[in-house]
Computed example of a mutant assay.
Amino acid sequence: MITSLYPVLAASDVPTAARFYADLLGMAPTFTSDWYVSLRSGTAELAVVDAGHATIPEVARGTRAAGVLVTVEVDDVDAVHARVVAEGTHELLLPLRDEEFGQRHFIVAGPDGALVDVVTPIPPSGEFAALYAGSRPATD
């Protein structure tokens, strides 16, 4: 049985990457060292590790994230988006928009190539709901 699951993102500059996630998502550090920072908000957890650290297999050290999309569900995506736009400190890659599959979201560029998708669930469009009416999420 899984007791915990959280992303650990490799970073070329751990303090800068940790500040990025803390500022964007309102997360607080729960453990900090020069090579690893763990962040938490409620039950959500995310960590950043030095991309060159010995705990990463040598073949993968120093690599940039490719194809990594960290989705973070928030209570009010509009408020987070407004803050991000007002501060102007995060590169907005996808503007705030509604998706027919039931998500209101925006995407910013994260450190070292990761993408951060900030979302709030919304009702899916009627067409989408009708198309997938028989689908059910997987259960244990």
Results as ranks from 00 to 15, higher is better:
1 M>N: 13
3 T>H: 15
3 T>A: 10
4 S>C: 04
5 L>V: 13
6 Y>A: 02
6 Y>F: 12
10 A>S: 04
11 A>N: 01
12 S>Q: 04
12 S>N: 05
14 V>A: 00
21 Y>P: 05
21 Y>F: 14
21 Y>W: 07
23 D>C: 06
23 D>V: 06
24 L>E: 04
24 L>M: 10
24 L>S: 07
25 L>R: 12
27 M>S: 03
27 M>W: 11
28 A>C: 06
29 P>C: 03
29 P>N: 03
32 T>W: 06
32 T>M: 05
33 S>V: 00
37 V>S: 01
38 S>L: 03
39 L>K: 13
42 G>E: 08
43 T>V: 09
45 E>Y: 08
45 E>R: 15
48 V>M: 00
49 V>D: 00
51 A>L: 03
52 G>M: 01
54 A>D: 02
55 T>M: 13
56 I>M: 01
57 P>Q: 14
57 P>C: 05
58 E>P: 08
58 E>D: 11
58 E>M: 07
58 E>F: 09
58 E>Y: 10
59 V>S: 10
60 A>Q: 13
62 G>W: 02
63 T>K: 15
63 T>Q: 15
65 A>T: 10
65 A>R: 12
66 A>M: 10
67 G>L: 07
69 L>A: 04
70 V>T: 05
72 V>G: 05
74 V>H: 15
74 V>R: 15
78 D>S: 12
79 A>D: 08
79 A>C: 06
80 V>A: 11
80 V>F: 11
80 V>W: 14
81 H>Q: 09
83 R>Q: 13
86 A>P: 09
87 E>A: 14
87 E>L: 13
88 G>V: 05
88 G>W: 13
89 T>M: 12
91 E>H: 14
96 L>N: 05
96 L>F: 09
98 D>W: 13
98 D>I: 06
99 E>N: 08
99 E>D: 10
100 E>N: 13
100 E>Q: 14
103 Q>A: 09
104 R>L: 05
105 H>W: 08
109 A>V: 03
110 G>Q: 11
110 G>R: 14
113 G>W: 00
113 G>M: 04
116 V>S: 01
116 V>A: 02
117 D>A: 04
117 D>I: 04
119 V>T: 15
120 T>F: 07
120 T>A: 04
121 P>E: 02
123 P>H: 09
124 P>Q: 02
125 S>A: 12
125 S>I: 06
126 G>W: 09
126 G>L: 09
127 E>W: 14
127 E>C: 07
128 F>T: 12
128 F>K: 07
129 A>F: 07
131 L>S: 11
132 Y>S: 06
132 Y>I: 02
133 A>P: 06
133 A>D: 11
136 R>P: 00
138 A>L: 14
138 A>W: 11
139 T>C: 08
140 D>V: 09
